[in-house]
Nucleic acid binder design. Sequence first.
DNA 1: CAATAGCACGATCTTCCGTG
DNA 2: CACGGAAGATCGTGCTATTG
Length: 276
Amino acid sequence: MKHSDKTFWKQYIANLQVDLAHAAYTKVERIWEDLDYTPILNKFYYIIEGEGFLTIDGQTYYPKPNELYLLPADGVQSYGTINDDTFGKYWCHFTAKIGELNLFQALETSRFIRIEQPEQWRNKFERLIDYSNSDKLTSRIHTNSVLLEIIADYIESCDKVKFNLKATPAFEKMNVVLQYIEAHLTDNLTVEELAQIAHFHPNYFIQLFKNFTGNSPIQYINRARLEKAKNLLTMTELNVSAIADAVGLEFSYFSRMFREHNGVSPTAYREFIPKD
DNA sequence: CAATAGCACGATCTTCCGTG
DNA sequence: CACGGAAGATCGTGCTATTG
């Protein structure tokens, strides 16, 4: 890499904003599985024990203990168990953005790294979990600081790092739309509405959107809604109807779609998969 | 309250072609 | 190549009824 490139990126990356959604240690259930979905959040999985599989953008992995996986947002992913010896892992969900751009969209890293100092990394995740559960005034600051540390150390441990920055006009418009979707999940979003924001004809917009995200608008929106619903199911006591409302869906439809995507009904999910 | 089936209708999506 | 538009197939969606 040329020197001028490096200084540019060094400066650009300094604008990184992170936000942690959840962090925990979980020994996953046998039914832990999700196929071909596109998450909004990035994830780290730090495998401590057990077996299972991960598929990221068509490539399947069988993570081993002491490997740390990065599952970037906006990539098609699957995961699941393969036998009764399920994963025990530290994990966290988070956003990492530079302006409107996802960090790991701008920066292509390895999918996983081998952990050489397990104590150190366990400690990072323990701190992350503690801070995220703390109600101290400064807990959010600590959380962000540990998360940034984890991200930075992860990137440093990758043998190859590639930079992608394609700032086409369509790219910019799509980013605005994605942001809009995130902010309006509760409302009745329509393709027409989204197309207007991007100043495109709906027919054409759908093509662009699918090209950009890998999903059609409605698919993308519903996946996002279900992710949010999962969080609400595990992190709150809200009843299922209220959660359906919160993600902008009519109850019977929500219930049906939830089962189609997750294999279990909302209540069953809440009971059997309390974390991730 | 929660889940699920069935149904009717409108919205979404694909395809293909037109224009500058 | 970037985009708009028509047309038709497909699918998403809300409603109602039924059951636990």
